[in-house]
């Protein structure tokens, strides 16, 4: 078995698992590109950000950041918090990614919710190589996302209908993610505190300054509730 044919078999084994992700990423990616376009950015922006950030929700938020006042610290903290879940994907993947050589760097860089769920759950077929299989899952997902975002960025300017209100797509996306979370969790303490503390912070500090106080309050409350939440079987 030569190396080339192992790589090819790994690719052919990986591709079918990414087909559902192809549909989802193209749709959301195109939407992201159009959203960037109607926000006044050329297609270079969605193409570049989808390539180097490659984290959907963070990229949508980044558009708002780019339209707002220059505040790199707030951008850093907010994106850190949105993507904090990666930390825990990483912890679960420590062993899975071990021994994959130089490919490991890209596997880590390109780790997203979808690559995580495939790489964590699928048993790699025997004639394929584990490292290459996970590499292609990651690369294909990355490619779908960048392709969608770039297409949306290019074709966004040819849209002839009134796009006012299209930015609601981001709200809709987070409402769906939040609902999914509510449906799968055992208790709603953490979800509810996320909503309630953010609203309190918004009422006190206003829309331009509520982000960091809200994050601090959420973090503090979750640390205070550590014992009862762990005892009650945690929130997830």
């Amino acid at each position: 078995m030569n190396k080339y044919s192992t790589i090819k078999r790994s690719f052919l084994a990986a591709f079918p698992y990414t087909i559902p992700i192809l549909a989802g990423f193209l749709f959301l990616g195109i939407t992201y590109g159009i959203y960037m376009n109607v926000s006044g950015f050329s297609f270079i922006y969605p193409m570049l950000t989808s390539m180097v950030v490659f984290a959907g929700s963070a990229e949508f938020i980044l558009v708002n950041m780019l339209l707002g006042v220059f505040d790199p610290v707030q951008t850093f903290l907010m994106i850190l918090m949105i993507n904090a879940r990666h930390l825990f994907y990483g912890i679960s993947l420590l062993e899975k990614y071990a021994g994959t050589g130089i490919k490991k760097l890209y596997l880590i860089f390109g780790m997203c919710d979808e690559s995580f769920s495939v790489n964590c759950s699928v048993d790699v077929p025997e004639d394929a190589d584990k490292g290459w299989f996970m590499f292609f899952v990651t690369l294909l997902n990355h490619t779908y996302w960048v392709t969608g975002a770039t297409l949306g960025g290019i074709f966004g300017s040819f849209i002839s209908f009134n796009t006012e209100g299209l930015d609601f797509v981001m709200t809709a996306m987070f409402v769906v993610i939040f609902l999914e979370q509510l449906l799968k969790e055992k208790n709603h303490i953490s979800s509810a505190s996320g909503i309630i503390l953010s609203v309190i912070s918004l009422l006190i500090f206003g829309p331009d300054k509520f982000i960091i106080p809200a994050m601090v309050m959420i973090f503090a409350l979750l640390m205070l509730l550590k014992k009862p939440l762990e005892k009650g079987g945690a929130a997830v």
Partner: peptide
Amino acid sequence: FIKYLGKVLPAAVFGFLVVYC
């Protein structure tokens, strides 16, 4: 505490993001 945050933080962050939007 890292494992604990990994379990409970995402739910609160998603709630926060809805409010943010």
